[in-house]
Design a protein around this nucleic acid. Structure first.
Length: 648
RNA sequence: GCCGGCUUAGCACAGUGGUAGUGCACCUGAUUUGUAAUCAGGGGGUCGCAGGUUCAAAUCCUGCAGCCGGCACCA
């Protein structure tokens, strides 16, 4: 009999007969090890403990509290949930049930919808199944047997899954008691290892195979952890995330509102608009330094123009249109690019004019599907920090790298340093010849490689095939916020099509007409969306330069009113956004109210301060009070409120 | 767009067929106050919209809209 060599995490080696199972190995070391081991890793790959070991490998026994076991706990929980659902509602078909971040889900085909109270029923049934502690056992079936069995059970979706498994690949069946499921595994040794730290979170509709033309299934999301403390911590984290919700904070901080008559459209209140304008002013400075020229193009243009640009055909169903009294049809612009091409076309352009950078804080209008709307993160009317750079083909790399550097510098000013870039390639619905797409995708791919190289691998990259814009491939910049969520913001798109379609050209060195390449780029992306992201990232506690209201001067007694006015005026003169609070209330009341409104700085002034010409500074999130002279306070606050790009 | 849920005062919520409530906010008065809620009084709602059932509808039924959670979509 042949032997294989197993290497343990501590470096020890052991020779065992080929085909020995992990469980045998564990048992031979100690019964208690075998008892607490739920799976193993062979050369780092999670595997069923009962699998025979066929070759030399490093081996690591996984207990249920091992981080590596977490995905098994979740996957096993998904199976147990499926069994529970089928036990409670016979005739329900099972489909797929993968592990996801923080949990798992399973999609079911069931005629009647799940009801809110069903969550508790399913959880109870799951607990019973887990308490039975039934072993998970694996079988390998033939394709025919699998299809036959599932067909007889009325599990049509499973039959389709069997058909989708490539020839030559094992069809694995995992059993727990009498229930079994087609599954690639691995699983833990038994259902009992799942433990008690699981919870079903919500129901949702989900299309079979993610395809909206196919049947809609009922999905149940769950979360599962090794310990109840971890479950509790996760639920707490969800609550904390909820407190940051920009829709809630937007209302509480009086930044904006939405209403029924304008779904997906923001009503900006004075404070929210101040924040918005602060962002625009920042970006305007950044773009001016980078050589962009700001323009403004019409919000509506005639339909035939959008037919020419390709938008009507490729994007028409998302465009707002209006028929005028003279019966001409106009479209609200869903993008700024065609308008910018018109501005480019005014006056003959030479190769010497390139790169030509045209920027606009343009408000675009997109008829988003109703179900997609989500606060300010997904709206129907939004402002882009949009720009189009007209270049020659051999300027692509240089210009894209400049954009990249600008993008990263800007994100850094807002505290976002963990960036992730995705390359999206040609979609099915597109304009332009494949050779142009080849060139454009190659160019952006090269840019991405160079960006990655320069970041010393700090920037993660990813390929998203088929996700590009209809006129060109994209680099999509995703940033990670304070609590680890990722948001897609910036985009750089290389376009060999649109300029040509709209008849834009330049005169090259040989007096020939050439079509420029266009780079479409946005850095915040949508100002509305970016504002929402900032609210959630800072949980409303904006750094001073962004805070809509920076300082409140609160009086302790009305005798200090004249001095408070003086302080307010001095701060205003220094360029700070400040309001007095002279109300006939106790200082504790005022502090509480302005703290809840997330005003970064409260200056309390009483008689004492008026006489000494001091102010008492209290900062949001701190109980501490610092007494400063008025000139010192102004200097400090003025310095702190300077936008990051204007600091010396 | 699809599946499910929700919609009652400015906000958060209670109210399962019989006179629409609570807290905060708001207004008035008193209080002049030193760092997260001073006290007392008062006003405020076609119960999302439109139909229907009923002697009677916030409550039951139908349709629509918006919102929420997902899915699809995010050019």
């Amino acid at each position: 009999m042949t032997n294989v060599t197993l290497t343990f995490p501590d470096g020890a080696e052991r020779s065992v007969a080929k085909g020995t199972t992990g469980l045998d190995v564990a048992k031979s070391i100690s019964p208690s090890l075998a008892k607490r081991t739920v799976a193993m890793q062979l050369d780092g790959v999670l595997t069923d403990l009962a699998d025979p070991i066929q070759s030399d490998a490093t081996i690591n026994f996984v207990s249920r509290t091992d981080p590596a076991a977490l995905e098994l706990i979740r996957h096993d929980a998904a199976h147990v949930m499926a069994e529970a659902v089928q036990a409670l509602w016979p005739g329900t078909q099972v489909t797929i049930g993968p592990v996801i971040d923080n949990g798992f889900y399973y999609d079911f085909a069931k005629a009647e919808p799940f009801l809110p109270e069903d969550i508790a029923k399913i959880e109870k049934k799951m607990a019973e199944i887990i308490a039975k502690n039934q072993p998970f056992t694996k079988e390998v079936w033939s394709r025919d047997k699998a299809k036959d069995t599932f067909a007889k059970m009325g599990e049509g979706f499973k039959v389709e899954l069997v058909d989708a498994i490539p020839e030559g690949q094992d069809l694995k069946i995992y059993r727990q008691g009498t229930w079994f499921d087609l599954c690639r595994g691995p699983h833990m040794t038994s259902t009992g290892a799942i433990g008690k730290a699981f919870k079903l979170m919500k129901f949702a509709g989900a299309y079979w195979r993610g395809d909206s033309t196919r049947p809609q299934l009922q999905r149940i999301y769950g979360t599962a952890w090794a310990t109840e403390d971890e479950l509790k911590a996760y639920l707490h984290q969800l609550e904390e995330a909820e407190k940051r919700d920009h829709r809630k904070l937007g209302r509480e901080m009086d930044l904006f509102h939405f209403q029924e008559e304008a779904p997906g459209s923001v009503f900006w209140h004075p404070k929210g608009w101040t924040l918005f304008q602060t962002l625009i002013a920042y970006m305007r400075r950044a773009q001016q330094r980078a050589g962009y020229m700001e323009v403004n193009s019409p919000d509506m243009m005639e339909k035939h123009f959008w037919e020419l640009s390709g938008h009507w055909e490729n994007y028409g169903e998302n465009m707002f249109t209006t028929t005028l009294p003279d019966e001409r049809v106009f479209c609200c612009k869903p993008m700024n690019c065609p308008g910018h091409v018109q501005i480019y076309k005014h006056g003959l352009k030479s190769y010497r004019d390139l790169p030509l950078k045209i920027a606009e804080f343009g408000k675009v209008h997109r008829y988003e599907p109703s179900g997609a709307l989500h606060g300010m993160l997904r709206v129907r009317h939004f402002t882009q920090d949009d720009a189009h750079i007209f270049i020659t083909e051999n300027q692509i790399m240089e210009e894209c790298l400049k954009i990249n550097d600008l993008m990263l510098a800007i994100y850094k000013d807002f505290g976002f340093e963990d960036i992730h870039i995705k390359l999206s390639t040609r979609p099915e619905k597109r304009v332009g010849a494949d050779e142009l797409w080849d060139k454009a995708e190659k160019a952006l791919g090269d840019v991405l490689d160079e960006v990655k190289r320069r970041s010393n691998g700090r920037i993660r990259t990813e390929l998203q095939p088929g996700e590009g814009a209809f006129y060109g491939p994209k680099l999509e910049y995703t940033l990670k916020d304070a609590i680890g969520r990722e948001w897609q913001c910036g985009t750089t798109q290389v376009d060999f099509n649109l300029a040509g379609r709209l008849g834009a050209f330049y005169i090259d060195e040989n007096s020939d007409k050439k079509t420029p390449v266009m780079i479409h780029r946005a850095m915040f992306g949508s100002l509305e969306r970016f504002t929402g992201i900032l609210i959630e990232n800072f949980a409303g506690h904006f750094p001073l330069w962004l805070a809509p209201l920076q300082v409140v001067v609160a009086t302790i007694t009305s005798e200090a009113d004249p001095y408070a006015h003086e302080v307010v005026n001095a701060l205003k003169a220094a360029g700070l956004r400040v309001e007095p609070d002279l109300r006939n209330e106790k200082i504790g009341y005022k502090v509480r109210e302005h703290s809840l409104a997330k005003v970064p700085v409260i200056l309390a002034v009483g008689l004492r301060d008026a006489e000494s010409r001091n102010v008492s500074i209290r900062r949001l999130g701190s109980q501490e009070q610092t007494v400063l002279s008025l000139p010192d306070a102004i200097a400090t606050l003025k310095d702190e409120s300077t936008p990051p790009d204007l600091r010396g």
